[in-house]
């Protein structure tokens, strides 16, 4: 079995799951009811995407190991930090609303371009998951773009908060387009999306009256399992129940 393909599918699943978990932290805490509902809707879409990818990864793992031990739940709840292959951007804290919507904008613009490409992938299951998810991501990108513009071109305070958020998050965007070995081996060079992504960011930032950052050092590691200190805390919360009460269902 092609282990780099399994790694790649888990990477796609982990990205979606960790973003979903972060956004879900807003549940009941959104700035207004409509936006609380919006961010948790996005979280739910991402959770659904991660389930599709985990189910597929579990199927491939079981086929290669001739077992039935891997499930979507075991992959989400029983792997350790180093096994997670999500990008740095996904695990960054929510911060204020500016940081959350900017993180979503960077991520959705990336997912939008990625899924557009993956819907024609030779692997039929990856193509099917991507084609379906692309419709949802179009909404996420639209919603988050509008928020970046509203806050960037809003009051002095909201503009300042966006600047702080850009300062915080920009360093994690480079990793999205630096392919890990398993990405190259499974037949897709993500670096080819970089220019289109950058052009989308520039278009939205110009309307938002926000400066596009100068080239800076980009942090890398998440995709290969080297994470920031935040992921451990996310997993501790997310995995607590299954680890304390194995196989619990309700």
């Amino acid at each position: 079995m092609n282990s780099s393909l399994i790694d790649y599918i888990q990477h796609l699943a982990d990205n979606a799951l960790i973003m979903a978990q972060r956004n879900a932290e807003w549940c009941g805490h959104g700035p207004v009811l409509e936006q609380d509902i919006a961010i948790t809707n996005i979280s739910l879409d991402l959770l659904g995407q991660s389930r599709n990818f985990y189910q597929y990864a579990a199927q491939l793992i079981n086929e290669s190991e001739k077992s039935d031990e891997a499930t979507e739940d075991s992959l989400a709840y029983l792997r350790t930090e180093r096994a997670f292959k999500n990008c740095f951007l996904a695990e960054q804290p929510n911060g204020d609303w500016a940081q959350t919507v900017l993180r979503q904008f960077f991520f959705s613009a990336y997912q939008f371009l990625l899924y557009k490409k993956l819907q024609d992938n030779t692997d039929e299951q990856i193509a099917a998951i991507a084609a379906k998810a692309l419709k949802e991501v179009t909404y996420h990108l639209r919603w988050s773009s509008e928020w970046v513009i509203r806050l960037g071109d809003g009051t002095e305070e909201s503009h300042q908060r966006m600047l702080t958020a850009i300062d915080e998050l920009w360093q994690y965007t480079g990793e999205l387009f630096m392919p890990a070995a398993y990405e190259l081996e499974s037949g897709f060079d993500v670096s080819s999306l970089k220019d289109d992504w950058f052009n989308k960011v520039v278009a939205v930032f110009e309307e938002a009256t926000l400066p596009v950052p100068e080239k800076c050092f980009m942090q890398t590691g998440g995709k290969t399992g080297i994470h920031t200190e935040h992921l451990g805390f996310i997993l501790a919360e997310m995995q607590y129940l299954q680890r304390t009460y194995p196989n619990a269902e309700w």
Binding site: E34, I37, N41, R142, W143
Partner: peptide
Amino acid sequence: CISEFGSTACKSL
């Protein structure tokens, strides 16, 4: 449009 997202995934407000 008040919100792109509504009470379920398939609706907006």
